[in-house]
Design a protein around this nucleic acid. Structure first.
Length: 349
DNA sequence: AATTCGTGGCG
DNA sequence: TCGCCAAGAAT
């Protein structure tokens, strides 16, 4: 390990001292009331970890509660209908995760009789479980040693060790995992892993970190070299394109006209307003909405599809009407659900 | 290696 | 309003 010689770069704590401080801090100041911590069981840890991928804790919490009520264990989830799974996930985003979790339950039931394995290597074979999640399950569900590297750990390590450069590069990713392995304690890894995440979430935050309260401040490279605000190195962002979308809206006494989207692309397997590939003069305008995805902006135009025959003719995929009272049997994308809710509220008044 | 997967909150 | 970013994985 080489350290950039800026100012007085401190010598990092040895792994045992580092882990000891993280664990002690976690026990005194860390989070202990997160819903999934009340279980610490493999199923609950798996559910929470997949929900938490690229998603903030506060967003996940209500979904987690609802999920556990609907699908309390591996067997229940494994035998559930996909539409029910997607309905419970609707609004949470990254919908492949829902299908991965569904497949994961079926995999664990079929392969392991409902018992998750306790090693990162075997966990990696579970659908939706990557290197981070495999380590997290090993730590949280089994309290066994395994490294975790997520956004929090990357940021904390980049600052603590004074690592510059693009953290998403293969080279630095390898370095971060090596550091994470080296600093993983042989005991109490559940508290250690939770401590790393809690430090990253509450003290070593992206903006306005609270270095005064940090148990690692004394030997933090970024703190000593006044680089807390410049580490980790900001990566150059490329701007996202704007796409146009054209949807059909039709609400009758029989329900809402919907199509199930294909398994690839945006909103896979969710139910949405039927989408046209291009603008059409055959319909009148009903409304519009805008939506921002991680990789493009969507400007959507919604047509009045009073004539269902016309809609069918412009479409290859099967359309169906879903009664309003049956909308909780399918998963709707967030902006579609919003648009629909607005219309339904108008009808109630 | 680079893309493609959502959504909501916050400064 | 706008960019940032969050317990990443799959391809």
């Amino acid at each position: 390990m080489t350290y950039k010689n800026i100012g007085n770069s401190p010598i990092p704590f040895a792994p045992n001292e580092f882990a000891k401080r993280v664990i002690n801090w976690q026990r005194q100041h860390g989070r202990h009331d997160l819903p999934w911590q009340q279980y610490n069981q493999p199923y609950h840890v798996l559910v929470s970890e997949l929900m938490l991928q690229q998603t903030q804790v506060s967003t996940v919490i209500p979904y987690f509660h609802n999920w556990i009520v609907k699908f309390p264990d591996f067997n229940t989830l494994a035998s559930a209908q996909e539409d029910q799974v997607l309905n419970a996930w609707q609004g949470l985003g990254y919908y492949s995760r829902a299908r991965n979790l569904h497949r994961a339950a079926q995999f664990v039931v079929a392969q392991y009789n409902g018992q998750l394995p306790d090693s990162p290597e075997l966990l990696r074979e579970v659908p939706g479980v990557g290197p981070y999640t495999a380590g997290a399950i090993t730590a949280f569900a089994f309290n066994k040693p395994a490294a975790i590297v997520d956004g929090n750990v990357k940021r904390l390590f980049a600052r603590y060790f004074g690592i510059e450069g693009d953290l998403s590069s293969t080279q630095l990713n390898r370095k971060l995992w090596q550091l994470a392995e080296r600093y993983t304690p042989n005991h109490n890894n559940r508290a250690y892993a939770q401590g790393l995440l809690d430090l990253g979430a509450t003290l070593c935050k992206p903006r306005q970190p609270k270095c005064e309260e940090c148990p690692l401040q004394k030997t933090c490279n970024a703190f000593a070299t006044h680089r807390v605000d410049t580490l980790p190195t900001a990566k150059k962002k490329k701007q996202i394109p704007t796409k146009q979308g054209y949807f059909l809206y039709s609400l009758t006494a029989a329900g809402v006209l919907l199509e199930q989207r294909p398994s690839d692309g945006i909103w896979p397997r969710l139910w949405s307003f039927p989408e046209l590939k291009q603008a059409s003069h055959e319909f009148t305008e009903h409304g519009s909405f805008k939506h921002v995805f991680s990789h493009y902006r969507l400007n959507a135009l919604v047509y009045n599809a009073s004539s269902e025959n016309k809609a069918e003719r412009l479409h290859h995929t099967a359309l169906k009407r879903v009664a309003v009272e049956d909308l909780d049997q399918v998963g709707l994308p967030a902006p579609i659900r919003k648009y629909l809710d607005t219309q339904l509220q108008r009808l109630d008044k």
